[in-house]
């Protein structure tokens, strides 16, 4: 069959080109000095590294987050006016402060995970209307709660640290519960849900389920 022959020939040609490129890439150069290679390589490396981190920081801003209508019209609207957005001291915690880890390794892992979000935005829009978002809210919220439980509320604790918390300045109710939580090794998200966004329907059953299956499922004792 002529069709098959052509396709095979094309594939063989491509493989040959790739092999050639691979060999050329690894064979020593005869014209460029080692110094030039090192200098260009180092400068290129620095530039790549800078550009990489610059681009990553660019995607780590509130402006970037709300450039998608899914974020701007749902979660961002709900966040406006909450204590993390407006408060007496004017210190704000914006989207990435809570949802992207500060430490580099964890940050890169989270950025790679975010490709899933790109897929759900560009390829298979799953929350592009308010109705679809509401239908998925419990699942999405549970994902975030689970993630925060897994990391012991790492992003909360970037600012809210039990050790730096002066419980004597808190009201009696908060003081009792925070001391208790600290003793029991609880984490912020165990109680503080719906702090910056509206809660999904059925939130408290989901919370109960999550907290009660936690120790057994993950071998974590509390």
């Amino acid at each position: 069959m002529p069709d098959n022959g052509n396709a095979n020939g094309g594939r063989r040609g491509l493989v040959a080109i790739l092999c050639e490129a691979w060999r050329a890439f690894w064979s020593p150069t005869a014209r460029i000095s080692l110094g030039a290679l090192v200098i260009v390589g180092a400068a290129g490396g620095v530039m790549f590294w800078g550009a990489f981190n610059w681009a990553m920081e660019l995607t780590n801003t509130e402006t970037f987050c709300i450039s998608c209508h899914e974020m701007a019209q749902n979660v961002y609207r709900e966040y406006k006016g909450t204590i993390h957005d407006a408060n007496k001291s004017g210190v704000r915690a914006t989207c990435p402060d809570c949802h992207v880890p500060k430490e580099w390794t964890y940050k890169v892992v989270r950025k790679i995970e975010a490709t899933n979000e790109l897929y759900h935005h560009f390829v298979a829009p799953s929350i592009d209307t308010r109705e679809k978002f509401e239908a998925k809210r419990l699942q999405l919220a549970t994902n975030v709660w689970t993630a925060m439980k897994t990391t012991d509320s790492r992003e909360c604790r970037n600012c809210h640290d039990f050790d730096s918390m002066d419980v004597s300045m808190q009201r009696s109710r908060a003081r009792t519960r925070h001391l208790q939580a600290s003793d029991e090794g609880k984490t912020c998200i165990d109680c503080h849900k719906g702090v910056a966004h509206r809660l999904p329907a059925g939130a408290f059953n989901a919370e109960r389920e999550l907290n009660e299956t936690w120790g057994s499922g993950r071998g974590r004792t509390q």
Partner: peptide
Amino acid sequence: PHQVDKYEVDLKVNQCLR
């Protein structure tokens, strides 16, 4: 005997019941 202004009480959720 406590603050309730931040609690969500709407069609979907009643945070008092938590």
